[in-house]
Amino acid sequence: MLQLLRKIAFPFSLVYGLVVHLRNFLYDTGVFKSHTYNTPTLCVGNLSVGGTGKTPMIEFLVRMFKGHTIAVLSRGYKRQSKGFLWADANSSVLDLGDEPYQLHQKFPEITVAVDADRRNGITQLENKVKPELILLDDAFQHRRVKPNFSILLTSYGNLYVDDWYLPTGDLRDSKREAKRADCIIVTKCPKNLSQSEKNRIQHKLKPLPHQKVLFATLEYSTILKGEVENLSLPDIKKKKVTLVTGIAQPEPLVQYLQSEGVLFEHYKFGDHHHFSESDIQKFRDHALILTTEKDYVRLQGRVKNLFYVEVAHSFGTEDHLFLEETLKSLI
């Protein structure tokens, strides 16, 4: 039914695409201005709506720059607050949005802030924190800021070159805008991806001479983290497990759990889903509830026996070295 509705909406996607092209044209010709800043800025984003692994990539970069004074600036998607907001001890997931709150909880040593106006957010950070580097989360479309380096993510199972504009497809920006990326990372790749398959993908993406294409896989932890205790994956193989997800693409996690022999019932919700009391009633009393880290921060304290699976991007040796050498030269 959804696919049929998407096809019916094709004329709307043409209008959407026209608006996107016009906006980019106005920036490309200088009618709309892009600003640079004294503080180095590193942008992580995509051309589609969700599902490419932006938050694990931000976490990867936070770990890479450990020991440096860095800040993460996000718009705080679906938060209930407005304007610029610092993450502090009194912040909640409703104030910041799930992804910034997750980063704040996981990396309390760094500065996390939210502001839909990235220019104002950068100015606030420069004036009060003076970080060595600002990570711009999900800011590829925010052309009012011209970052020092841009990382464009695209998932292996849904390359942007194979996609189409919303609402028929998942693209929120033109495929041509990939030209603004300094590095394109194909995420969620199968393990042991062959060189011939990498070559095939590179041929489809047609990177420009200055662009580097890298490949990453998702690595799931075998330790399931909970508020009171942690469990190992073997601990739950004989238990009745309920999987609850509110992310764009839960399929990799589903496949991972199945490959590990975990039997579960799956409650699947939309990306950034706000769990209502009626939603929670469906699984509140279940014996063991497993979820993603992003969903955990929205469910924590509302259900018992709640655990999450950590996920991280993993790169081959050469790709990892390229990222480390290239990005650390920014500061």
Results as ranks from 00 to 15, higher is better:
Leu5Asn: 09
Lys7Tyr: 13
Ile8Ser: 04
Pro11Ser: 08
Val20Arg: 09
Leu22Asp: 04
Asn24Asp: 15
Thr36Glu: 13
Thr39Leu: 10
Thr39Val: 15
Thr41Tyr: 05
Thr41Pro: 02
Gly45Trp: 10
Leu47Pro: 06
Thr55Gly: 00
Phe60Pro: 00
His68Asp: 07
Thr69Lys: 15
Leu73Ser: 11
Leu85Arg: 15
Ala87Ile: 11
Tyr101Phe: 15
Gln102Cys: 04
His104Lys: 14
Val112Pro: 05
Thr123Trp: 04
Thr123Cys: 07
Glu132Ile: 01
Ile134Lys: 07
Leu135His: 00
Phe140Gly: 12
Lys146Asp: 13
Pro147Val: 02
Ile151Met: 10
Val161Asp: 07
Asp162Ile: 05
Asp163Lys: 11
Tyr165Lys: 04
Ser174Gly: 07
Lys175Arg: 15
Arg180Ile: 00
Ile184Lys: 02
Ile185Thr: 01
Ile185Gly: 01
Thr187Leu: 01
Leu218Phe: 02
Ile223Pro: 00
Val228Gln: 13
Leu233Arg: 11
Leu233Pro: 02
Asp235Ser: 14
Pro252Ile: 10
Leu257Arg: 11
Ser259Trp: 09
Tyr267Asn: 07
His272Tyr: 08
Phe275Ala: 08
Ile280Gly: 05
Arg284Val: 13
Leu288Gly: 04
Asp295Leu: 03
Asp295Ala: 02
Gly301Asp: 11
Leu306Pro: 04
Val311Phe: 04
Phe315Ile: 10
Thr317Pro: 02
Asp319His: 12
Thr326Trp: 05
Leu327Pro: 04
Leu327Asp: 07
